[in-house]
C-alpha cells in the first residue's frame, strides 16, 4: 500500500487526471519524467534570463545608470555565483537581503528610482515582471553552483531563527502554517509532492529550483512571488514584497540547502 502511494507521487497535474487513472503507475511515472525532460529542454525561463540581462545593462531612472555596478554580495557588478550566496547581510543597509530586496536597493541607490511603487505593484504587473526577469537572470548566473549561505553575522543567524519560527507559525481561519504541508516528507496535496522544507534533504528541493517558469500559468516566478502565493493558500494576508518574514523564510530554506547545487532558473508544471 505504502509503495503504491509513493509510486503515485510522481504523477503531476501535467497529465489529465482521467487519463492517468487508466494508466499503469509505472507508465505514468515514465510519461511524467519524459514530460519533465521535454520541459527542461525548452525552458521559457531562458527568455526571461535574456530580458533580465538586458534590464541589468540598460541605463534607467533619474540617474540614467544601469545596474552593472550593483553589489549583490560578491562586490560591485559581480553576478556570477551571487544568487547561490543569498540572502546575506549587507553592511550599507545593515540588513539581511535576498536577491529581490538587494535589487531594490540598487535601483534606489544607483538609478535613483523610487521603489515604493515597485513594492506595491501586484504580481503580474509590468514592475514585478521586470523584477522577476532580473532575478531570473541573476539566478541563472549561479546555475550548477553550490549554495553557500553564511550564518556567521548575528543578523544572518537571527534571520534564520526568525525564519524557522515563521515556518511553524500557525494562524488564519484554516490554522495553517508552512509546516502543515511542508513539515513531513512523502506527503502530497492532490498529486503535488511536498518537500519537507525544514530538513536538509527537503529544503534544497524547493530552494534550488526557484525562480521557475510555471508552464500552466505561463509565468516566471521568483521566490518572493512563490512565498506570497504560499501565504495566499495559507489564507494569510499578503506578505509585503521583500519583507523580513519572506527573507527570513528564504534564509531558513537556503541555509538548510547548504552545498546543494542551484538548478535555476527552474521549470514547473
Amino acid at each position: 500500500m505504502r509503495l503504491r502511494l509513493i509510486a503515485c507521487l510522481a504523477l503531476t497535474a501535467g497529465l489529465a487526471a482521467g487519463g492517468a487513472a487508466r494508466a499503469e503507475n509505472d507508465q505514468s511515472i515514465e510519461g511524467i519524467e519524459k514530460y519533465r525532460e521535454a520541459l527542461r529542454d525548452g525552458n521559457p525561463a531562458e527568455l526571461f534570463e535574456a530580458q533580465g540581462e538586458e534590464l541589468w545593462k540598460k541605463p534607467d531612472g533619474p540617474k540614467k545608470a544601469s545596474l552593472e555596478k550593483c553589489d549583490l554580495g560578491l562586490g560591485a557588478g559581480v553576478v556570477k555565483g551571487a544568487y547561490a550566496q543569498l540572502p546575506r547581510y549587507f553592511k550599507d543597509t545593515d540588513r539581511v537581503q535576498d536577491a529581490e530586496s538587494r535589487l531594490l536597493t540598487c535601483k534606489e541607490k544607483l538609478q535613483g528610482i523610487d521603489v515604493g511603487p515597485i513594492i506595491k505593484a501586484p504580481f503580474g504587473s509590468h514592475e514585478k515582471d521586470d523584477m522577476n526577469a532580473l532575478v531570473t537572470y541573476i539566478s541563472g548566473q549561479s546555475k550548477g553552483m553550490p549554495v553557500k549561505v553564511s550564518l556567521s553575522h548575528p543578523k544572518e543567524k537571527a534571520m534564520f531563527n526568525l525564519g524557522k519560527r515563521m515556518f511553524y507559525y500557525e494562524g488564519g481561519p484554516y490554522d495553517f502554517a508552512c509546516a502543515t504541508c511542508h513539515g513531513q516528507s512523502g506527503a502530497r496535496i492532490r498529486l503535488q509532492e511536498l518537500p519537507a522544507l525544514a530538513t536538509t534533504k527537503g529544503a534544497p528541493v524547493g530552494w534550488t529550483s526557484w525562480p521557475a517558469y510555471r508552464v500552466s500559468a505561463g509565468q516566471m516566478w521568483g521566490m518572493q512571488w512563490r512565498l506570497a502565493d504560499c501565504f495566499r493558500q495559507q489564507r494569510f494576508p499578503e506578505p509585503n514584497y521583500t519583507s523580513d518574514a519572506t527573507i527570513a523564510l528564504s534564509m531558513f530554506m537556503s541555509a538548510l540547502s547548504k552545498d546543494a547545487k542551484m538548478d535555476t532558473p527552474g521549470i514547473k508544471r
Binding site: K155, A158, L162, Y169, F231, E238, A245
Partner: peptide, 18 residues
Amino acid sequence: WGKGAGDAAFSAMLKNSF
C-alpha cells in the same frame, strides 16, 4: 527559537511584514 528570534523580535517582524 535562538538568538534574535524572541517574542518581541518575532512579533515586530510579523507586524511589519504583511
